[in-house]
Simulated assay, not measured.
Amino acid sequence: MKKWISLTMILACAFVFAACADGKNDSAPDEAEDGAVDEGKTTDPVELDLVEDEKLPSVKVNLMDGNGKPVGTAELTEEEDALRIMVEAENLPEGLHGFHFHEKGVCEAPDFESAGGHFNPTDASHGLDHEDGPHAGDLPNLEVGPDGTVKEEFFVENLTLLAGEENSLYHEGGTSLVIHAEADDGKTQPSGNSGDRIACGVVE
């Protein structure tokens, strides 16, 4: 009789140990689901947000005419290998107009002479067509339509919005964006015979 009791107790203990072992195995998948991350997968939402929130520098330049009235804007955006310039303006004379960045961030109407000469950190000659040019601030002519409006986009490789660079538009003293009365011929010094300054905006 004692032998049967002993055997019964041994079997009961065996079932208890087996149940404990099953419980541990059942919990393993839960732990993997809650805490483990498969190698090679990026699941951290904070890290993804940081990547998505990275933005290159940009600025909007407000252009005004010689009477101090707004005529449009130029949006400057730093791209990977160029500066993107998006110009949208109105109430300008029809035709081609010289378009340049100038060396001082001051736009005093009516003549905007306060903007100084062209932005030219490398001491180059003026003109996109000049063999020793261009100035960093030289841009293609704007073409204004019969209705007095213009909407154009340029990509310029020798300018940047990144501070500390030689060709940065945020250099000491600032810079400005100027529209001239006449077309720039692309080679005549110092400004391509582009005439008076009819609109100006500070890069700030």
Rank of each mutant, 00 (worst) to 15 (best):
residue 203 V to L: 05
residue 126 H to G: 01
residue 59 V to M: 11
residue 190 P to N: 04
residue 177 L to C: 11
residue 77 T to H: 05
residue 187 K to R: 03
residue 47 E to L: 15
residue 138 D to P: 05
residue 80 E to R: 10
residue 170 Y to N: 12
residue 159 L to T: 04
residue 163 A to C: 00
residue 42 T to V: 15
residue 186 G to Y: 10
residue 44 D to P: 03
residue 117 G to L: 06
residue 10 I to E: 08
residue 143 E to W: 11
residue 139 L to C: 05
residue 37 V to Y: 13
residue 38 D to A: 12
residue 142 L to I: 11
residue 18 A to D: 06
residue 192 G to N: 07
residue 151 K to V: 02
residue 195 G to A: 09
residue 181 A to K: 15
residue 158 N to F: 09
residue 193 N to G: 15
residue 91 N to C: 00
residue 153 E to S: 09
residue 103 E to I: 07
residue 111 D to N: 15
residue 20 C to M: 12
residue 73 T to V: 13
residue 29 P to N: 08
residue 70 P to C: 04
residue 197 R to G: 05
residue 137 G to Q: 08
residue 191 S to C: 00
residue 107 C to L: 03
residue 202 V to E: 06
residue 59 V to P: 06
residue 44 D to C: 11
residue 82 A to Q: 06
residue 191 S to W: 03
residue 27 S to D: 12
residue 170 Y to R: 10
residue 139 L to N: 04
residue 61 V to Q: 15
residue 73 T to F: 12
residue 52 E to K: 15
residue 160 T to Q: 08
residue 118 H to W: 01
residue 140 P to W: 14
residue 42 T to L: 15
residue 78 E to W: 10
residue 48 L to W: 13
residue 104 K to T: 05
residue 63 L to H: 14
residue 154 F to M: 14
residue 3 K to F: 04
residue 39 E to Q: 09
residue 200 C to G: 06
residue 114 S to T: 13
residue 1 M to G: 13
residue 24 K to T: 03
residue 52 E to I: 07
residue 186 G to L: 05
residue 2 K to C: 02
residue 183 A to Q: 13
residue 58 S to K: 11
residue 42 T to S: 11
residue 20 C to K: 11
residue 181 A to P: 03
residue 138 D to N: 12
residue 179 I to W: 13
residue 144 V to N: 09
residue 84 R to M: 02
residue 153 E to I: 09
residue 135 H to G: 02
residue 60 K to I: 12
residue 146 P to L: 07
residue 106 V to W: 02
residue 170 Y to T: 02
residue 2 K to D: 07
residue 2 K to N: 10
residue 44 D to L: 07
residue 150 V to M: 03
residue 26 D to E: 13
residue 38 D to M: 08
residue 55 K to H: 15
residue 57 P to G: 10
residue 55 K to M: 13
residue 170 Y to Q: 06
residue 198 I to Y: 12
residue 169 L to Q: 04
residue 106 V to K: 10
residue 100 H to D: 01
residue 183 A to G: 14
residue 118 H to K: 04
residue 26 D to G: 00
residue 192 G to P: 03
residue 36 A to M: 11
residue 193 N to S: 12
residue 90 E to P: 00
